[in-house]
């Protein structure tokens, strides 16, 4: 190995972010970005966000994609995820942006990606992304959650949601960064709808804000007075971005546009059940 190949330590923490932009190595190279949409159902819902990131890193290596790496002593592949999915929650709408050093052919890539991931994680769509596109972290403003509440009737659930939605303010104690603070969380609840009965209870779809006063499904359930043991499956069905006042998904699944137009506030709230069972069957447990 020649001298020149050694990692050069000087580049670690080379530039504070607020310094004026200087031409650097990154700028001199061409960079390409892809955005990946994936779902997470079944047993894999018990792995952490960090675990998902590690699995994608390994999958990218298996596929041999030309991933861009960070500089320095410990080069890492340049991946950026949207909002973390809590351990135990499923999702139909997870996103990942990958920086590449050259263009790749996207045809068939989603399937190859899925094959390189564990059962239960399915890559549903991959698109090319403009280099200047807003990052997922910046752009996501709200999520829709499909929440099963066990041991409750539709009527009971409707009464609870109606009174919650009717409230003009909901002062709530919240712990953020180790500090307890009372805030009005009513603006974070953008909508709740009872979607229908399930085998063991009732399902609701909740549209919750993720910026400023963000709200988690578990916090909503506490607010609605639902006990922890009544919490059933929780699935993220959508993440919404706000681009110049327009609400859109980071990747809209390729569906007939007419269907998109007819979607109501909580489209596809029940779409998850099929793939859910499917994922478990793959593990031989049914």
């Amino acid at each position: 190995m020649s001298e020149g190949d050694k990692p050069s330590g000087g580049e670690v923490n080379a530039q504070p972010e607020d310094e004026p932009k200087k031409p650097n190595l990154h700028a001199q190279r061409d960079r390409f970005f892809i955005r990946v949409r994936f779902s997470e159902f079944g047993k894999v819902r018990f792995i952490s966000h960090r675990d998902v990131a590690r699995l994608f890193e390994r999958a990218l290596r298996k596929l041999g994609l030309p991933v861009a790496y960070s500089e320095g002593f410990s080069p890492r592949p340049k991946l950026s995820f949207g909002l973390a999915l809590s351990v135990g929650y499923e999702s139909d709408a997870e996103y990942l942006d990958v920086e590449l050093t050259e263009k790749v052919d996207l045809k068939g890539l989603a399937q190859r990606f899925t094959d390189a991931m564990p059962n239960g994680i399915t890559v549903t769509e991959i698109i090319e992304l403009d280099a200047g596109a807003a990052s997922l972290q910046q752009a996501i403003v709200s999520c829709i959650w499909h929440i099963e509440v066990l041991g409750m009737s539709i009527a009971e659930m409707e009464a609870i949601t109606a009174s919650t939605m009717a409230a003009t303010e909901l002062p709530t104690e919240r712990v953020r960064k180790g500090k307890t603070k009372v805030s009005d969380v009513r603006p974070s609840i953008l909508g709740i709808e009872v979607v229908g009965p399930t085998e063991n209870g009732v399902a609701i779809a909740a549209h919750l804000a993720t910026e400023q006063l963000s709200m988690r499904p578990s916090e909503l359930l506490v607010l609605l007075g639902i006990e922890p043991d009544q919490e059933g499956r929780i699935t993220r069905t959508h993440q919404w971005m706000n681009l110049d006042g327009e609400r859109c998904e980071p990747i809209c699944l390729s569906e007939p546009s007419s269907k998109n137009e007819t979607r109501d506030v909580f489209p596809g709230a029940f779409e998850s059940t099929d793939s859910d069972t499917q994922a478990d069957e793959l593990h031989g447990v049914s």
Partner: peptide, 20 residues
């Protein structure tokens, strides 16, 4: 029971290379 414990991923198996 798994949503109620730390690190539930310990108990799900599903490793690459696992024999089924």
């Amino acid at each position: 029971l798994l949503p109620r414990v730390q690190k539930p991923a310990r108990y799900i198996g599903c490793e690459d290379g696992a024999k089924a």
